[in-house]
Amino acid sequence: MRTHFDVFGLPRAYDVDVPALEKQYRELSLLWHPDRVAQADARERLKALEGTTALNEAFKTLKDPVRRAFYLLKLHGIDLDREDAGAQKDMPLEFLEEVMELREALDGAMEKKDLARARSMATDVEARRKAALAEAAGTLRALEGGGGGADLVKKASHALGRVRYFTRFLEQVDAFEEESLS
């Protein structure tokens, strides 16, 4: 299977030199973009469209550390974005308790239209998200470095499950904030 790393000719790894990636993205876009071959025959244009679509997907995934982490996990067989997301049910019990606690607190703040409370919760959750992402990054580095197997995958999956939840939580606060201001 051709991976997003293959599109850029990069070795599979958690760490990516983003400025270099960006430069390469621009060079490849100039070569592959459909607009650059608008006068070519239909086959060539379709190739350009497919190539550029793959390039844009790969760039979007690799330039962002969070997306990159989820993608690496997917390459290890766990797709947290899948709709049924069996993996999500697999989360440890204490995390589910944490989720319920946060959920209740945010619902309370939103009910009372307490923007200040929601914001301070967001600051706290942002820190938890960062910590979870750092843990995921460390685990994925170890995994890609060739160390360990199923245990590390599970650890990375739990860390990213938390990242995913915290991100959604922050999005909700954002939406609440926008609603309150408008």
Partner: peptide, 9 residues
Amino acid sequence: TIPMAAAQV
């Protein structure tokens, strides 16, 4: 950025 694709199972 477009063109873009995404899939979901």
